[in-house]
Amino acid sequence: MDVFSDSANIDTYVTGFLWILKLTAAATVGALVLGVLLAGMRVSPIPVLRGFGTAWVNTFRNTPLTLIVFFCYFGLYSALSLELSDDIDTNNYWLGVIGLSVYTAAFVCEAIRSGINTVPVGQAEAARAIGMSFIQTLTLIILPQAGRAVVAPLGSIFIALAKNATIVGTIGLMESSSAMKELINANGDAVFPIFFVFAGTFAIFLIPTGYAFGWLANRLAVKR
């Protein structure tokens, strides 16, 4: 394990995972907000919004994430000159967050929408019967119950997001997988230790995350 006694290598490793952590955190927020909005659109009475939501889901759910992240870099940044920061790493980070968010939002939307289907029709009828608007019915009655029904699948989506964050390495961010590649390139004799440390780090963080979501799902479940 000589590789990990070198402080420069440790730094590469830590920096790599810090990027993953930041990418996951920001994209989780982005995907959740976007996904809930999209789900709202897909069940709305306005055809244009429904169409927009459906088009979004079909587009981003069926495009490889690598292509989306490449597009964020070459399309948004290079071609359209969208500059999100003077610092190249920070710029690539935000481009990555955009790519991860728009992609993951499609999956969040569909999870929430399946949650909406678990809420009995009577809940919305009762809400409308006391005079609530569509938005009120959705935000006060339907989404809170739908969200609680899909905590576990949302957990899986966010775990996938954390691993997908490594794809941002393809546009030059030194996140964990790029860091791993760099360490392996420099330490060809230690491929297995390096690989297991990186893979193990993901497992150590993500396995408890899965259990946490499972626990939360039980705790938040709506009793009927």
Binding site: P120, A129, G131, M132
Partner: peptide, 18 residues
């Protein structure tokens, strides 16, 4: 919505917000 707020409704399946 305003009209509905003036007409109360009680359902067969109660439909209390769970």
């Amino acid at each position: 919505a305003r009209l509905r707020s003036e007409v109360g409704m009680v359902f067969q399946s109660f439909n209390l917000f769970a």
